[in-house]
Amino acid sequence: MKKVVLLICLGLLGGCSSVEKVLSPEPWVLPYERGELAQPIMQFSRNPLSDKFRQHVFDTREGARGAGVTQGGGCGCN
C-alpha cells in the first residue's frame, strides 16, 4: 500500500513538473536563430500604402470587414 501511495506521489510530482513546463516553456527559437525572419520578404505587410489601398478596395465592395493587415477610414464605395 505504501509503495502504491509513493508511486502516486511520484507520479503527481512528475505531472506537476510537466504542467510547469507547459505553463512556462523556454523560448525554442533563440535570438541568433532569427536572422532569416528579419528579411523584408517575411513581413506580413511589406508596403503599407499599397496594402492599405488593396484592403480599402476589398472593404468597400464586400460585406465582410475587419481583422485585416491595415486600417483605414471613409467610404468611397458607390
Partner: peptide, 28 residues
C-alpha cells in the same frame, strides 16, 4: 455588430523565397 478572426502564416522557403497563407472567418 460583426466579428472577424484571421490566421496568417509566413514561411521562408529555399533560398530567398517565401510562402504565405491566410484565412479569415467573418460573421455579423
Amino acid at each position: 455588430t460583426s466579428t472577424a478572426f484571421a490566421v496568417r502564416l509566413k514561411k521562408l522557403l529555399w533560398g530567398d523565397d517565401a510562402a504565405s497563407f491566410s484565412y479569415r472567418y467573418f460573421d455579423d
